[in-house]
Amino acid sequence: MSAKLALGPVLFNWKPEVWRDFYFRIADEADVDTVYVGEAVCSKRTPFYAPHIPDVIERLQEAGKEVILSTLALIMNAREMNELRETTKDAEMLVEANDVSACALLAGRPHVIGPYVNVYNEGTLKYFTDRGATRVCLPVELGHDAMDALLANTPAELEVQVFGRLPLAISARCYHARSHMLHKDSCQFVCDQDPDGMELATLDHEPFLVVNGVQTMSHSYQNLTAELAQMQDLGIQHFRLSPHTADMVAVAKIYRDVMKTEIAADEADEQLGTLIGDVPFSNGYYHGVNGVDFVSQT
């Protein structure tokens, strides 16, 4: 089976109509096989775009995309717990579990495990596949060697994030609110000011991380174009693009062209660089070095 392209859930607080139109355009124009829809970061954001979710799902499915419902990574209160129980109970679509509680609720039927659940080794992978997990998107810090070991003997399809800022940490505290001297409970949704995350630099003004509400991400964009062929040979079956304000239809086309060997990775990187602007790439985790590093393949 040739590998498929997936578009991960939008991780940022985009205006509801921007969020809706983004997915409409993905449905109409993007060459991706799978699209994840739903909130993984902050449950306070959901009510704003929730009215658009049915339309978005319908449009994506009519366009022939596989739609998977994403769920919250950190579940901290009864409301979030109840929302997760409802999502997992009613879903006619595949659901992506991003917390162990969701894995438990989805056990016994096919489901996807997202990158926020710690599947680091074959013991954990087998535990979940025995209970219905069919696809697992690996934690960001796992690289080539772990992929190789995990693929040796599993019925699961594995997915790897190949594009976009890496989700590095999640907290009960909101650093976006804190940066604006606000409390999380009265955050005024200031995270909507930074549709690709709020830049965080060192005291020497070196860009380092970005803040996305309760989530902390890499400043660099993961970019595994040069590693796609090797990952396909290993048997990775899904490549995840994480949404940004950059033209994701164009990003998807670039990755598809590399997968089909129609363009070379260095040419792809040049095109991607134009799309994302003045931000470095990283691929260090894949190569077993610092996550921030970019190991050149040429």
């Binding site: 990574a73 950190l74 926020y116 710690n118 934690p139 960001v140 810090e141 890496l166 590095l168 940490a169 999640i170 907290s171 009960a172 505290r173 991380l209 902390t216 890499s218 985790y285 610092n290 996550g291 921030v292």
Partner: peptide
């Protein structure tokens, strides 16, 4: 301050 076991900041750097 991050959710324990779910923080990759150290390995990133």
């Amino acid at each position: 301050v991050m959710a324990e076991g779910r923080c990759q900041l150290s390995s990133y750097a």
